[in-house]
């Protein structure tokens, strides 16, 4: 978002835990109870889903998930079947999470990694090279950050139909295009903080722009590259709209679309939505927890997505 507003924040979030702020004041019991309640409120819905994902359809239909805690008769009926059925696509549902899981990976990985290099070159050019129109071109990027990406859906569908484009490349290219302005924005903001003296001295030693980019700038920009990569990966993995419009339900559907179709089927198959939902969350939540530090840095470095 706004670089200056959050610039000090960027520094603060990286390592240090306690310094300024309110830390002088210790939490009283009221604060502790309040925060405890908040944590409960935030985790109970997920807990309910996890528990339900191990219950049989009958149990889930006839009793609340919380009854598992005080009615031991439910314990023996807890089962992994929902997961097995959701993964293999058994039962009343046609959704097959095993396949859609791979589809999600097949969509998210290229859509995450390909734009990075393209954006990094552009960010380098904006930061370290002088050229006419530099400011105007960058302001274009800043203004495009807020443009809703669904302006592109109808015109793109026409282009894709005319070119007889099919399958994953449709969404890869779309996500590359949609993610580009944010990528350039984040990377350029980061690169302006790199010490110019290093680049100047490399230039004096006769290094080309190309060499400086690959040997100096790219390695130094790893935190920002990682931040954008996580952001883009989560965004693409969790995306429903782009997948729905360009891929739709069927053999290429990612987990979000599979889960949506499953949710639509009331009655028979719905117990699979819990297992499917948990499966669909595993990847992003793991990525998120493991790389949280980079992600936070990416947020503070400025993130709006159009």
């Amino acid at each position: 978002m706004t670089a200056t507003a959050t610039a000090p924040a960027k520094k603060a979030s990286s390592r240090r835990v306690k310094q300024g702020g309110l830390s002088e004041v210790r939490a009283g019991w009221f604060t502790k109870v309040l925060l405890g309640l908040l944590v409960v409120m935030w985790t109970v819905p997920t807990l309910g889903t996890i528990i339900t994902s191990f219950r049989t359809l009958d149990d889930a239909n006839t009793s609340g998930w919380w009854e598992v805690f005080y009615k031991p008769e439910y314990w023996s009926r807890l089962t992994f079947d929902n997961y097995i059925d959701a993964w293999n696509g058994a039962g009343a549902s046609s959704a097959n999470f095993g396949a859609s899981f791979l589809n999600s990976l097949a969509i998210a990985l290229p859509a995450t990694f390909i734009p990075i290099l393209i954006a990094a070159f552009a960010a380098y050019t904006f930061t370290f090279m002088e050229f006419k129109g530099r400011e105007v071109l960058f302001i274009l990027i800043v203004s495009l950050l807020v443009v809703p990406n669904f302006v592109a859906f109808i015109p793109l569908q026409n282009i894709y139909n005319n070119l007889e484009f099919v399958g994953f490349p449709k969404v890869w290219l779309a996500h590359i295009g949609f993610g580009m302005s944010l990528a350039i924005f984040i990377l350029r903001n980061f690169m302006t903080t790199l010490p110019r003296s290093v680049i100047e001295s490399a230039k004096i030693d006769g290094a080309s722009h190309y060499g400086i980019f690959y040997r100096l700038i790219l390695p130094m920009s790893v935190p920002a590259l990682a931040a954008f990569a996580i952001f883009q990966f989560l965004w693409v993995w969790n995306d429903l709209m782009v997948a729905l419009v360009f891929l739709g339900p069927g053999e290429n559907e990612p987990v979000t679309v599979a889960l949506t179709s499953l949710k639509g089927q009331l009655g028979q198959g719905w117990n699979l939505t819990t297992a499917g939902g948990i499966l669909s969350m595993l990847v992003p939540v793991t990525v998120f927890l493991v790389l949280q530090r980079y992600f936070v840095r990416g947020l503070t470095a400025g993130a709006v997505k159009g």
């Binding site: 908040l38 944590v39 935030w42 985790t43 819905p45 997920t46 309910g48 889903t49 339900t52 998930w65 989560l234 993995w237 969790n238 995306d239 429903l240 987990v255 979000t256 889960l259 949506t260 949710k263 939505t273 819990t274 499917g276 939902g277 669909s280 969350m281 992003p284 939540v285 990525v287 998120f288 927890l289 949280q292």
Partner: peptide
């Protein structure tokens, strides 16, 4: 962390969770 984690979950996933 507990309050931050839902950010990683898709809205479809969130809808599944809130169904209960």
């Amino acid at each position: 962390t507990m309050i931050f984690v839902p950010m990683a979950i898709s809205m479809v996933g969130a809808a599944t969770v809130w169904r209960f």
